[in-house]
Nucleic acid binder design. Structure first.
Lengths: 238, 238
DNA sequence: CGGAAATTTGAGATTGTTCAAATATGGTGG
DNA sequence: CCACCATATTTGAACAATCTCAAATTTCCG
């Protein structure tokens, strides 16, 4: 039996932040230390109450969660899915909004995140992370405003593939997405029924396969063209 | 004839930033100085090209503009309208995205904005401004994802009313909105035809009147209830 | 006073929704 | 290991919201 220890597995947080900025060795140590402060949320549990502020930023070590807003009549809009390596609560610096709640999809393990000195590489990494969040939110608005159901699904699959790849999860053409069609619907501004039909359609047309929590994209270049997909391009000034 | 000098008119930028944070007198002076560096864009002119970074943040002194993203097939999604007092390019600190272009609706006058010392009240004002931008973007995603055409119009009118009020423009029930129905359509993810019909409907139902670039809301409390409207609530931590 | 741009209206086509029921699927206790 | 339950997916049929295309009509601007 091959020993598969969870203790020494490379941290998705470390992997991702290293992609976003160059981290000095001592920062990596600080991250590893901070990661010892873990918290576990069972699947479907609300992690951050709607009108509550997240005191300190935390990162997701494993599992998926999402940010949502629920309207009084029960309609729900999911703003973003959070995956391993994502950092929550960065914007909290001063948060004008008590906007959205965070809910775990699967079991989620989070950890504390070290505070960054202004001007440090870690601060840079956080800033890039926050800027990426902004980028994805803009992309989401465009999806919701101007894309058809097919396009919304394709575009979001491409996006999440890229995000997962940032932490080394999945491959170009195949990656895990542990979401129900209803969650997908609430993300994409559709109904679960229509998501189901559209997925089916995409499958028949040989573009996307959704099977047991795994998404398979058959022809990424073609899909990218279809939705005019733009990979976020990191630019550092100065 | 009463003298109406434009020179001594209170700056919308100053008004707005003063609402967002307490500004020391010398900061106010610095703002007034920076405002001398003005630039004028004629109506309909693209102010910031799509893949170009905004070098330095600027503020809008007069006129309306908008941020848009245009898809290859011509579809357009407007992400945000910029009004007097708004600051552009704050996120530029490091911008991961060459996301959207900015276009003037009316003639627009912008001015430079002084750099803020980290930790200063001015930095605080900018941070709050950026956080507000984030809030409005979230609100936009929810509008586009889960609101009907009627709700989108109502919700956005409430939002822009609040934003205009921040710089002292308009009243609770009546305010200027110099936009064509087509621009509104591209903002709200609808067609100009449907915006027209929905505005008409809202007018027949006595809720909203759109006349000559002016919007009149007849019963704000009722409208707020209809769309579960949430005024952004500024919270400073520490 | 034009002429271009914006608004308005009509009619038919689409896309996506709703409601309800049938059919998997996955996890759990026995 | 299997039966069973809850949850998720799938399907059908009717319906509603929004779009498309085209043609007035009105408004605004030079």
């Amino acid at each position: 039996m091959i020993s598969s220890s969870s203790a020494s597995a490379p941290s998705p947080l470390l992997i991702r932040l290293s992609e976003l900025a160059r981290l000095a060795p001592w920062v990596i140590t600080a991250l590893a230390t901070a990661e010892r402060d873990r918290r576990r949320s069972p699947a479907k549990r609300e992690m951050v109450a709607e009108r509550e502020l997240l005191r300190k930023p935390r990162a997701i070590l494993s599992g998926w969660a999402f940010q949502q807003r629920i309207l009084t009549d029960g309609r729900r809009q999911i703003l973003n899915f959070l995956i391993p390596g994502d950092v929550i609560g960065l914007r909290t610096h001063l948060e004008p909004v008590a906007s959205s709640s965070i809910v775990a999809v699967t079991e989620v393990v989070t950890c504390a995140v070290p505070e960054a000195e202004p001007g440090s590489e870690l601060a840079e990494a956080y800033a890039v992370s926050a800027a990426l969040d902004g980028h994805y939110l803009v992309a989401h608005a465009i999806r919701l405003g101007r894309f058809t159901a097919q396009e919304r699904l394709i575009d979001w699959f491409l996006e999440i593939q890229g995000r997962l790849a940032l932490t080394g999860i999945g491959r170009d053409d195949q990656f895990p997405v542990p979401l129900t069609q209803e969650l997908l619907a609430d993300l994409l501004g559709l109904t679960n029924v229509h998501v189901n039909r559209t997925l089916k359609l995409l499958h028949r047309e040989g573009m996307v396969t959704a099977q047991g929590g795994t998404i398979t994209l058959s022809d990424q270049p073609r899909l990218r063209l279809m939705v005019d997909y733009r990979t976020p391009h990191l630019v550092r000034n100065r």
